[in-house]
Amino acid sequence: MDLSRRGFFKVLGAGGAAIGTGFGTANASEIPAPSEDSLGCLVDTTLCVGCRKCEQACNQRHNLPAPEESFEELTVLEKERRMDETSYTVVNKYYPENIGTLTWRERPTFVKFQCMHCNDPSCVSACIVGALTKQENGAVIYDAKKCIGCRYCMVACPFQVPAYEFDNALTPQVRKCTFCFEYVKDGGLPACAQVCPREVITFGKRKDLLHLAEWKMKNNPDKYVDHIYGQHEVGGTSWLYLSSEPFETIGFPKLSDDPPPRLTEKIQHSLFQYFAAPVILYTFLGGVMMATGFMKNGKKKISDKPSQKGDTHES
């Protein structure tokens, strides 16, 4: 045997550690708990008139390129828009719809959209280099210096928020709402919440915003649908919404309460538990066979066997 006793136990120990690591990984995940002091915004869509002041304030604070049409131009609301690398927030206009036998309000609903700053962000989970991080105050922020441009965050986001600078060939970045992090951490307000003339956006601690939303719904049951969007969707978001219309009719996706990262981790962990461990085991056994010369000895025995041609003797 070519493998010494000490070498054999080294191989055995390495294989055992690998298998142990595989099972350990399968049970390592925990759902991160949001901070009690995390901040957020409550958007009461029943108050919004679509003035686009929030878009303008966001554009100016972040030095974004000017839009093709001025912010006073309200005809742009007739077409549904999405956030992009030049617009961190947009307002859309939705006309009333008939849902079954119910006819909802006659006036259109205006809805402001931006990054939702999820409690358990899919973009953060998907980022392989840590360019996106969830802060204690609730903001999901981006570090361009770490980004490698893989754009996994764009695929992972359930709200389709992150946008990529495809036109920037040299230093492209992923762009999205920052929750005005640099201002908020010093006690300031997000630009959109600060400028809103109708006080559509209420900024504060998320737990207090939930209490406010519940109070509004309780005292105005005919005004609001009985749902706070963002309270539970994808594990909860920092941005919360009230509406007089069903949310699925005003641009909001219908999502599970489970955070997507928990689902993907369950899949990964199942693979580790039921697939990776056997692979590691067979790899380990193969390594032992090679190290002990089993394969070499087997080949040698086959080669030492005389061929049928060699067994034939001339008479």
Rank of each mutant, 00 (worst) to 15 (best):
D2V: 11
V11F: 15
G13V: 14
G16L: 05
A17D: 05
T21Y: 11
T21R: 08
G24H: 06
A26L: 04
S29Q: 12
P32H: 08
P32T: 08
P34D: 06
E36S: 13
D37I: 00
D44Y: 04
L47R: 13
C48G: 05
R52Q: 09
R52F: 00
R52E: 01
C58Y: 06
N59K: 11
N59L: 06
Q60A: 09
Q60D: 08
A66K: 08
S70D: 12
S70K: 09
E72F: 13
E73F: 09
L77G: 00
E80P: 10
T86L: 02
S87Q: 11
Y88F: 11
T89K: 02
N92P: 05
K93A: 09
K93H: 08
E97K: 13
E97P: 02
N98C: 04
N98R: 14
I99F: 06
T103K: 15
R105T: 14
R105D: 12
P108T: 03
T109P: 08
K112N: 14
H117V: 07
C118V: 06
N119L: 13
P121Y: 05
V124S: 09
S125Y: 10
S125R: 01
A126K: 09
G130T: 03
T133C: 02
K134D: 04
N137H: 14
V140W: 00
I141M: 02
Y142R: 10
K145D: 15
I148L: 12
R151E: 11
C157L: 00
P158V: 03
P158M: 01
V161T: 13
A163R: 01
D167W: 12
T171M: 09
T171F: 12
Q173K: 14
V174R: 01
R175I: 05
F179N: 08
C180W: 10
C180H: 10
L189Q: 07
C192V: 02
A193H: 00
V195H: 01
P197K: 09
R198H: 15
R198S: 12
K205E: 09
K205V: 02
R206E: 01
L212K: 15
A213T: 06
K216I: 04
K216Q: 14
K216D: 07
K218A: 15
K218V: 09
K218W: 09
N219W: 09
P221T: 12
Y224I: 06
E233V: 10
V234S: 11
V234Y: 05
S238F: 00
S238D: 01
W239N: 13
Y241D: 10
I250L: 06
L255Y: 04
S256G: 13
D257N: 15
D257I: 15
P260D: 10
P261W: 06
T264Q: 14
I267V: 12
I267M: 10
I267C: 05
Q268N: 13
F272K: 05
Y274D: 02
A277F: 10
P278M: 02
P278K: 03
P278I: 03
L281W: 14
Y282G: 07
Y282R: 03
L285K: 00
A291I: 00
A291N: 05
T292L: 15
F294L: 15
M295L: 15
K299C: 11
K301R: 11
D304N: 14
K305D: 10
S307Y: 04
Q308R: 12
S315K: 14
